[in-house]
Nucleic acid binder design. Structure first.
Lengths: 150, 150
DNA sequence: CCGGCGTGAGTTATATTATAACAGAACACC
DNA sequence: GGTGTTCTGTTATAATATAACTCACGCCGG
């Protein structure tokens, strides 16, 4: 377990200063999407986020959420979890990391471990003359809690 | 370049003997889906495959394709490319590999490099008490051909 | 023989995820 | 005050995937 409230506060503070520095606009919709993801601390589908925005009277249509997510991903504040077609707040914002995810198929909690660059993908790409733009490293399985519950 | 016809023949021969050995039924629909993927040698969406099956008078509805793909994936003959929500025939069937993919975002060609198990994901999982069931390692970018063409 | 079971295929309908395309508001700059 | 840029709102639709039910077939025990 960890101090969730303070980890949210820290992440939001980082997001704001990062955006201010880069001249990016962290608008209300974008901020709220980030908050929702931080509060849940797990991967949420775009439509789950959308439902919550709707309840709060913010943007009620899919494009609103997808645009906010695009922005947050480009800013490095959120990651897309390909395995789930879902999204999770970045747990290591600002550390210039290559994300590696452990995704629980049961509770959808996402463990993000910072990893050094320069692994198998990079070596394979070099040999093939392939120019990597983005990489995805995800493992699906059961987290420690769900293993115990099972 | 490589001898495509012979690589298809080899892959089909492997698929048939593998299924026979394991008591799996490589039915006409399943075989045809595998052939289509082998012929293209790139990632195809489920509906692209479906269109081709329809043209040939085989199963005209989505479930037919998805079931065939499920079967082929479970048999280790096809991989799902998460980055593209698409599917590609396995280039190293029967070698007990952990697949690593280099996916060209332009031509959708998929380079599959066999990789040893036991990398970052496994180490990270061990530390977290996480039980890995499947892993995804994909890189998106431009392949050598498309870089030259650009 | 035949009846029940398991597996796969066919079909209808629908769920889930994502984007195109265009209109309007807010603001910054000249 | 016009003009460009960025963000939001909205309608509509595309793309991906699955649920649920039906039937056909082969197999095996009685």
């Amino acid at each position: 377990m960890h101090d969730h409230a303070s980890c949210i506060r820290a992440a939001l503070a980082h997001a704001e200063s990062h955006c201010a520095r880069e001249g990016l606009q962290l608008t209300p919709v974008r901020l709220r999407v980030l908050e929702i993801l931080l509060e849940e601390h797990r991967a949420l589908g775009a439509y789950e986020i959308l439902d919550r925005l709707r309840d709060e009277g913010l943007g009620g249509q899919p494009p609103v959420v997808y645009r906010a997510l695009d922005f947050l991903i480009r800013a490095g504040l959120v990651h897309r979890i390909e395995t789930l077609n879902a999204f999770a707040a970045c747990a290591h914002a600002g550390e210039g990391h290559v994300p590696v995810f452990l995704v629980c198929r049961q509770c959808r909690h996402v463990i993000e471990t910072p990893a050094p660059a320069g692994g198998q993908l990079e070596r394979a790409a070099e040999g093939a003359g392939f120019a990597i733009e983005t990489t995805v490293r995800e493992a699906e399985g059961l987290c420690a809690d769900c293993r115990i519950a099972a």
